[in-house]
Structures are given as C-alpha cells and as structure tokens.
Simulated scan of single mutants.
Amino acid sequence: MTIFGIDISNNNGPDINLAEVAREGFEFVFAKVSEGDGFVDYTWPGYRDAAHANGLLVAGYHYLRSDCDVTAQAELFVSHVGDAATMVDFEANSGGIDTFWAFVNAVNALGRTINLSYIPRWYWQQIGCPDLSRVPGLIQSSYVAGSGPASALYPGDGTGFWNGFGGKSVDILQFTDQALVAGHHVDANAFAGTVDELRAMLGLTLSTTQGVLMALNDAQQADLLQKVQEIWEQLRGPDGRGWAQLGKNPQGQDMTIVDAIAGLQSAVAAMKVAKPAA
C-alpha cells in the first residue's frame, strides 16, 4: 500500500488545519524547525503539537546551510525539535556531502538520531554524485504537473521518480508542490508502505498502552478488559456508586474502599489522641 503526507513550513502560513489534513486521509506531516544557525520556524511548535493531537506521524526538519557552523546548527535544531522524528533538508546552499555527514554526526553527538534525509536528485548531481548508500531515509523530489488532490496527482508506485541514486533506494517521494490539502497548496509526499513501517523508519514507537494491546489476541484483550472492570468495581462499588456495607460519607453517599480506609485512618488517629498518657 502507499500512504501520503504533507511537507509544510512558515511559507505555508500557520493556519493549516491538521485535523482536516487527517480527515482527508493523510498519515504524516514533515514540518520545518530551523535553518542555519539562527532561524527558528515560528509555526513548528503548533504544527508538531497538532500533528500529535490528530494521530499524524510527525518529523521536524532542519535546512542545512554551508555558510554556518555545523555544530551551532545541530544545537539549534536539537533544542527545538522536541518529541518528533528528525530530518535534514540538504539542497541548495547546503554544501557538499561532507557537510551533510558533519551535521548528522553533530546531531548524533547531542543524543538524537537523524531519521530522514531530503536530498533531491538534482542537488545530488550538482555536488558531484556522491555515495548516498548510508544516508538515513532518503527523500527524493520530482514533481508532476498540475494541482489537485494528492492521490489524484500521485504518478504511481511504478514511476521512474522512485528510481534510486547514489547507491540508495528512494524511501519517500515528494511528487508535487501543488497538492490541494485542507484548502492550501502544499508539498505532498508518498511512502510505499504501511503506517507502522513508516513509524519504524522514523524511530517512533507506539505508546505503552497501544503496544501492549496490539501484542494481545482478541481473547486476551477480552480477559484483560474483564479484569480491569472487576478491579474498578471492587474499588468504586457497583456502577461506581460505592458499597452500602461500608457506610455513608458526609454527603450521604455509599463509601468506596478508599473512603472507608481514609475514615478508618482518621478514627485510629483520633483514638491515639484520646488515649490517656501512661
């Protein structure tokens, strides 16, 4: 299967509704975090948080520049990307492949791992066709003509746009900068795989709860649900209304086990205070 995502930045404005993006069937968002050693994209925190809130996989990218200190760029990026996957945008004015690896290594030294590398074929050719076999998650861009829904513009899994270069297969294809998404014209990307496969490439994990539940079969999940319900009822009483046999709280409601224990503690404390000194 093939899934789709969008690539956005301050150039698209801050008002792309990611809830609508998710409703339109997109699965992931790549958004700009920083550029060079001083620019931070003001739209990033909002887009990152909205992507999380709407179940979209999200990666933040840094536009690498050869005219800025690589270590300073890595520090800027890592300090702002937060809890998202990481991506380096390596194209015009980014320098040669040595600059790319210097940035990747600098990010790694700060405790983060670059997950994706946007390297268009034209720029790879411009810098002398270096070896790309070890770059993480290669994103290549070749655009179709026209504008419209991303799924209608996508040229297909068999297009030559997917052909690898530099000894590396293309992992994600950016195939248009004119996809009509949530009322905006944006870059659109395709991933020829499942959401879970992309999640793995991005180094993202399921939440603890999702991971546990997906590891259980239907019978085990039903058993777990029954036990959770039984524990809840024991703690809260039938329908969460407390237990009549434990007495009433000051509001006249049946007490829960927690209420009863709290009352017992208060009674014991009162008895200790009332006990005459020896």
Rank of each mutant, 00 (worst) to 15 (best):
I172Q: 03
V29R: 04
Q125E: 15
V40K: 00
A22V: 00
L76N: 01
T86F: 09
G166I: 03
P155R: 02
L224Y: 10
V58N: 01
S34G: 06
V135L: 02
L153Q: 04
T159H: 15
R23E: 13
R65Y: 09
L225F: 13
E20M: 11
S79A: 10
P130Q: 03
E233V: 09
L235P: 03
R134Y: 08
A74M: 04
V29C: 03
Q265N: 15
R241T: 04
Q221G: 07
S142H: 05
G82M: 04
E27H: 14
N10T: 11
T86S: 02
A244L: 11
T209F: 04
N17S: 07
Y123L: 07
L64D: 10
S117F: 09
S34W: 03
G158H: 13
M214W: 10
F100D: 00
S79M: 01
G203V: 01
W232C: 05
T43I: 04
G166E: 03
D98C: 11
Q245D: 12
A152C: 04
W122T: 07
V58I: 10
W162Y: 00
V144L: 12
W232H: 06
S147R: 06
D177F: 10
Q265M: 00
N17V: 06
G183E: 08
Q126P: 08
K248C: 07
L204M: 09
H80K: 10
Q245R: 13
G60H: 08
A106W: 12
G36W: 08
T2L: 04
I6G: 07
Q140T: 08
G148Q: 11
R65P: 00
A31F: 11
C129Q: 10
G183T: 10
A219S: 14
S147N: 10
K275I: 12
F4A: 02
T86A: 03
Q251E: 09
